[in-house]
Amino acid sequence: MTQLDKGPAIDIRGLNKAYGRRVALRNLDLQVQWGTILAVLGPNGSGKTTLIRVLATLAKPDKGNVWIAGSELGSGDSFIRRMIGVVTHDSLLYDELSGLENLQLAAKLFVLDNADRKIELVSDQMGIQKRLYQRVGTLSHGWKKRISIARALLHDPYILLLDEPENGLDQQALSSLDQIIKDDSKALRSVVMTTHNLERGISLADEVVILSNGRVVYKSSTESVPDTAVLREAYFQYRD
């Protein structure tokens, strides 16, 4: 980690992104330090998913600079992709392949050594062993989400980008996810997590930001937020 811990895990400056005439992110500045869990809150259409897509190298910024693990987006994308694990709204899984085959594909794409052992490990973490041999298309949304999270963890990323990861998860899977997010053995792992659940955001995160109309309108450490009522007030104050 010598090279990584010099600057912030994520450094966003003046980020703009539009889809046609719809502006998704406006002049956004944000830093996430190593080992920090950041909860990104905001109403629908506030730019949370676009932010995750940009950080995941799936969307190209129109303007502004983004550094992830010290590498600038657009110039060191392969390195960045090795550093991040991504969970999006969509499962990013192939329905006709089994869970195991989907994980094997991810392992091959990341050219991982000891792939079988790593698949076993993440399968244990997310409790998916029972469903590993079943075709993904036949699984419920929750099981797909579990496999999707396992896939994101497979290469043991330093930065986790989670877009509303709790959607569709049962209590057991939620608990596994919370353990992964708060994993003390990964002291330098940073997490950026979008959520609509203010209580979860506060309980898991070190910092919270509220996005509205593609801008950061509120930022605070969770220690300085006395309870969810304060956050709720801020959330509704800045809602469209």
Partner: peptide, 18 residues
């Protein structure tokens, strides 16, 4: 078409490959 389902092409796009 199979890549469009579940946005599974993104599985390839988020891998550390060109």
């Amino acid at each position: 078409s199979s890549e469009a389902e579940n946005s599974s092409i993104s599985t390839l796009l988020i891998a550390p490959i060109g």
